[in-house]
């Protein structure tokens, strides 16, 4: 269980708070979408949970223990895959990178990497280099790298923000299937309202400057989602409308 308690963060002090009193509890196995305008502090929240920045105040606890530095069982998928996959390592070695230094031999690491690549349907690309792949494929490699690490908490920072619409839908479904198979807790940041409702069990809406929680909506849609039929459900349309209104109200 992830608990974020009254988290505030300012990049400069004195300066405006990017996040203010954000309190959030995410249960095990939940997939929570965090949605808000760009610049509302969504990424800052993820980076604080990942231990990449130290928040100005507030506390983050993972399974009861306060987070200080990067927790062991946490993995992250970044938006900019081209800057987070290492171009000098093959796809397989990129995926195996997090497994170095935990006592696995080279062969076991590679086997685990290939298994993770199979989960994202990319086993064929193991020996290629990231820059030889399309954007959607690179982001799948990124996801495979996170899966290989076998995290209990997966953070995704606008993971599908820089791929085309069709690839994006494929990746959303891939995420849902991976999640159904592996059952980890996922926190997904997005600025896309439809995406937040489509993949989430819950949608947390962040307001804008400072970022604070202005809405926390349960998604009452059948677990099995479908890109076309789910989006036609009245509940889906109703929810995306509610989220959209909350976000629109944040600045005007």
């Amino acid at each position: 269980m992830l608990e974020v308690e009254e988290l505030s963060h300012a990049y400069r002090r004195p300066g405006p708070n990017v996040l203010e009193d954000v309190t959030l509890i995410v249960g095990d196995g939940e997939l929570v979408s965090i949605v808000g305008r760009s610049g509302c502090g969504k990424s800052t929240l993820l980076r604080a949970i990942a231990g990449l920045i130290r928040p100005t105040s507030g506390q983050i606890r993972l399974d009861g223990t306060p987070v200080d530095g990067t927790p062991d069982n946490l993995a992250m998928v970044f938006q900019d895959y081209s800057r987070t996959l290492l171009p000098w390592l093959s796809v397989r070695d990129n995926v195996a990178l997090p497994l170095r230094g935990n006592g696995m031999c080279r062969r076991a690491r590679r086997a685990a990497a290939v298994e993770a690549l199979e989960a994202v349907l990319l086993a064929d690309a193991a020996r290629q280099y990231p820059w030889q792949l399309s954007g959607g494929m690179q982001q799948r490699v990124s996801i495979a790298r996170a899966l290989a690490y076998q995290p209990t908490l997966l953070l995704m920072d606008e993971p599908f923000g820089s791929v085309d619409a069709q690839t994006r839908e494929d990746l959303e479904d891939l995420l849902l299937s991976v999640r159904a198979n592996r059952g980890m807790t996922i926190l997904l940041v997005t600025h896309d309202i439809d995406e937040s409702v489509y993949v989430g069990d819950r949608v947390v809406v962040l307001g804008h400057s400072p970022g604070r929680v202005i809405g926390d909506l349960a998604v009452d849609l059948p677990r099995q989602r479908d890109q076309i039929t789910t989006r036609e459900l009245p509940e889906f349309i109703h929810l995306r409308g509610r989220v959209g209104r909350l976000i629109r109200a944040t600045t005007r």
């Binding site: 990449l52 946490l74 993995a75 800057r83 997090p98 230094g101 790298r145 690490y149």
Partner: peptide
């Protein structure tokens, strides 16, 4: 961001 990756994945 390469260094972020190293930190998140606990690279030695």
């Amino acid at each position: 961001s390469y260094l972020d990756i190293a930190r998140v994945f606990g690279v030695s």
